[in-house]
C-alpha cells in the first residue's frame, strides 16, 4: 500500500517566496555551488592541525632540545638529518601540511574580511601564487639537497658532508 505514495510537494521550489524581488541585491547569494569543497577544507583544517602539533613539536624537540641542543644547528646538522629518508619525509609532510593549513586559514580570513569580490580575487591569487612557490621550492630543496657544499674558493664549508 505504500508503493503509490507520491513524493511530498515542496512549496519552496514550486511557489515564489512572498515579497521576493524587493531584496537588496547585495544580499542575494550566487547559485553556483562549490560542491563539498568548504566541507573538505573544514575537515582538512582540523586533521592537519592535529598532525601539525605532533610534527612541529617533535621537530622542535629534535632540533633544539635533544643532543647538543640549540648549538648543534648548522649546515652539517641539516645535511645529517636529510641523509635519512625518515626526516626527508617528515619535513616534506610538515612543509605541505603547514603551507596548506596556513594558506587555507588566510583564505578564510580573506573571505571574512574582504567585502568586494574583486578584492577577494586579487588577494586569493597572490595567496595561491605565494603558497605554490614556497611549496615547490621547499620540496625541491628537500629532494635535491647537496650535502657537499663548497664555497666560492672551492673550500669545503664547515661541517659539510663530503665523501672523503
Amino acid at each position: 500500500m505504500s508503493t503509490t505514495n507520491t513524493p511530498a510537494a515542496f512549496p519552496a521550489t514550486s511557489l515564489e517566496a512572498p515579497r521576493s524581488g524587493r531584496i537588496d541585491p547585495k544580499y542575494l547569494r550566487s547559485k553556483t555551488s562549490s560542491g563539498s569543497f568548504e566541507m573538505a577544507a573544514w575537515v582538512f583544517m582540523r586533521l592537519s592541525g592535529i598532525a601539525l602539533v605532533v610534527l612541529i613539536f617533535v621537530h622542535l624537540w629534535v632540533n633544539l632540545m635533544s643532543g647538543g641542543g640549540i648549538a648543534q644547528i648548522d649546515f652539517g646538522f641539516v645535511a645529517g638529518k636529510w641523509a635519512n629518508p625518515v626526516w626527508q619525509f617528515w619535513d616534506l609532510v610538515m612543509l605541505w601540511l603547514a603551507m596548506l593549513h596556513g594558506a587555507n586559514g588566510m583564505r578564510t580570513i580573506i573571505n571574512d574580511y574582504a567585502e568586494k569580490d574583486s578584492t577577494r580575487l586579487w588577494l586569493k591569487t597572490i595567496l595561491v601564487l605565494g603558497a605554490a612557490i614556497i611549496v615547490v621550492l621547499g620540496t625541491l630543496v628537500i629532494f635535491t639537497f647537496e650535502p657537499c657544499m663548497l664555497d666560492a674558493a672551492g673550500e669545503q664549508l664547515p661541517r659539510a658532508v663530503c665523501p672523503s
Partner: peptide, 21 residues
C-alpha cells in the same frame, strides 16, 4: 530591513516535510 534575514530563513524550508501519508 529584515528581508535578507527572512530570505535565508525561507531558503532552509522552515516547515515540516513528511513523505509518509
Amino acid at each position: 530591513d529584515m528581508e535578507p534575514f527572512f530570505q535565508s530563513y525561507r531558503e532552509i524550508m522552515p516547515f515540516m516535510i513528511a513523505n509518509s501519508p
